[in-house]
C-alpha cells in the first residue's frame, strides 16, 4: 500500500509537470491551430535561466519561477510578432517547418552556450517529509504546488467567458472573429506569450528536480504531444486528465518494469486512445 502511494505521488509530480507542458501546447493549438515544435526549447530556456540565476546570484531557485515566466512571456511575444504572426493563413506544413526550424535553432544555441554538460544545483528546499510511510521530497512538493497554482491561474484566464470565447472564435474563423469585434492579433499574441511563459516555468521546475541539458525540453515535448493528442487536440481539460493518466502510468511502469517499458506503454496508450477516442478523452465528436 505504501509502495502504491509512493508511486502514485511520483506519478502525480511527473503528471503535473506534463500537464503544464501540454497546457501550453493546447493553448497555442486551440487559439492558432499551430503545432509549436519549439515549445521544448522554451522549456530549456526556463531551465537554463533558473540554473544561471541560482548559480550566479545564489538566490533560491523559487525565484526562477517568476523570472522564467517573465522571460518566457517577453521572448514569446517577440517570437510571435517576428515569426509566428507571419504564418497566419499559410499552409499548415509551412507553419510546422517554421516552428521546427525555431526548435533546431534553439537546440543549437543552447548547445553552443552551455555544451552538453548535465547541470544541477543544490540550492533551495531540501530534505524529505514522511507521511504514512511515504517519503516525499520537499522539492517534489514544491513542484506539485507550483504546477497546481500556475495551472489554475492559466485555466482561470482561459475560462473567463470573454477571453475564452474570443480565443475559440479566433481559432475557428479569424475574419468572422474580427467582424465580431474580437481583436484577433492581440488574442494570438496573448495566447502565444502565455504559452511560452508556461513552458519556461516548466523549465524552471524541471531544473529544480532534474538535470538541465540542451535537449531537456525536447524530451519533455514528445510526451507533451502525446498528452495533447490523447486529451484531444486543443482540449485543455482533456489534456490535463491525459497528463495525470500518463504520469501515473509512467511512474508505475518504470517501477514494475523499467524506463523503456514506461515509454513504450505511453505510446501504446496513444495508439489505443486514437483508436477508441479519436477526438480525445473528453473530446466533442463533431470537431469540424
Amino acid at each position: 500500500m505504501t509502495l502504491i502511494l509512493q508511486l502514485a505521488i511520483n506519478g502525480l509530480v511527473f503528471g503535473s509537470l506534463l500537464g503544464l507542458v501540454a497546457l501550453g501546447l493546447a493553448l497555442v493549438f486551440g487559439v492558432m491551430r499551430l503545432v509549436n515544435f519549439a515549445h521544448g526549447e522554451f522549456i530549456t530556456l526556463g531551465a537554463y535561466a533558473t540554473y544561471l540565476l541560482v548559480t550566479t546570484t545564489g538566490v533560491s531557485p523559487l525565484w526562477g519561477i517568476p523570472i522564467a515566466a517573465l522571460l518566457g512571456a517577453t521572448i514569446g511575444l517577440a517570437v510571435q510578432m517576428l515569426v509566428i504572426s507571419r504564418l497566419a493563413g499559410r499552409p499548415e506544413l509551412e507553419a510546422l517547418m517554421a516552428t521546427y526550424a525555431l526548435s533546431i535553432v534553439g537546440l543549437g544555441l543552447f548547445a553552443l552556450a552551455f555544451g552538453g554538460d548535465f547541470r544541477t544545483y543544490s540550492a533551495g528546499p531540501a530534505g524529505n517529509v514522511t507521511l504514512a510511510g511515504v517519503v516525499v521530497g520537499w522539492r517534489s512538493i514544491t513542484v506539485l504546488v507550483a504546477c497546481v497554482i500556475v495551472g489554475a491561474a492559466t485555466l482561470a484566464l482561459v475560462s473567463r467567458a470573454r477571453t475564452g470565447l474570443g480565443f475559440r472564435a479566433v481559432a475557428q474563423n479569424r475574419e468572422a472573429a474580427a467582424a465580431c469585434g474580437v481583436n484577433v492579433v492581440a488574442s494570438e499574441r496573448l495566447a502565444f506569450s502565455v504559452s511560452v511563459a508556461l513552458a519556461a516555468i516548466c523549465g524552471a521546475l524541471i531544473s529544480f528536480i532534474g538535470t538541465t541539458t540542451p535537449n531537456v525540453g525536447h524530451e519533455w515535448l514528445l510526451d507533451g504531444f502525446v498528452v495533447v493528442i490523447v486529451g484531444g487536440l486543443g482540449s485543455i481539460s482533456g489534456a490535463l486528465v491525459a497528463a495525470l493518466a500518463i504520469g501515473l502510468l509512467h511512474s508505475f511502469a518504470s517501477y514494475f518494469l523499467d524506463d523503456s517499458w514506461a515509454q513504450i506503454m505511453t505510446y501504446v496508450l496513444l495508439y489505443v486512445a486514437l483508436l477508441v477516442r479519436p477526438h480525445g478523452l473528453l473530446g466533442a465528436r463533431s470537431a469540424t
Binding site: R162, L165, Q172
Partner: peptide, 25 residues
C-alpha cells in the same frame, strides 16, 4: 457590423456562444 457572402459561423460553438463571443460596440 457585417455578414458574409459565404457564411462564417464559429462552427464548434453553440449558437448562443457565437453571439456571446461578440464584443458589443
Amino acid at each position: 457590423a457585417r455578414t458574409f457572402q459565404v457564411v462564417r459561423p464559429f462552427r464548434a460553438l453553440s449558437i448562443m456562444e457565437n453571439l456571446l463571443a461578440v464584443v458589443a460596440s
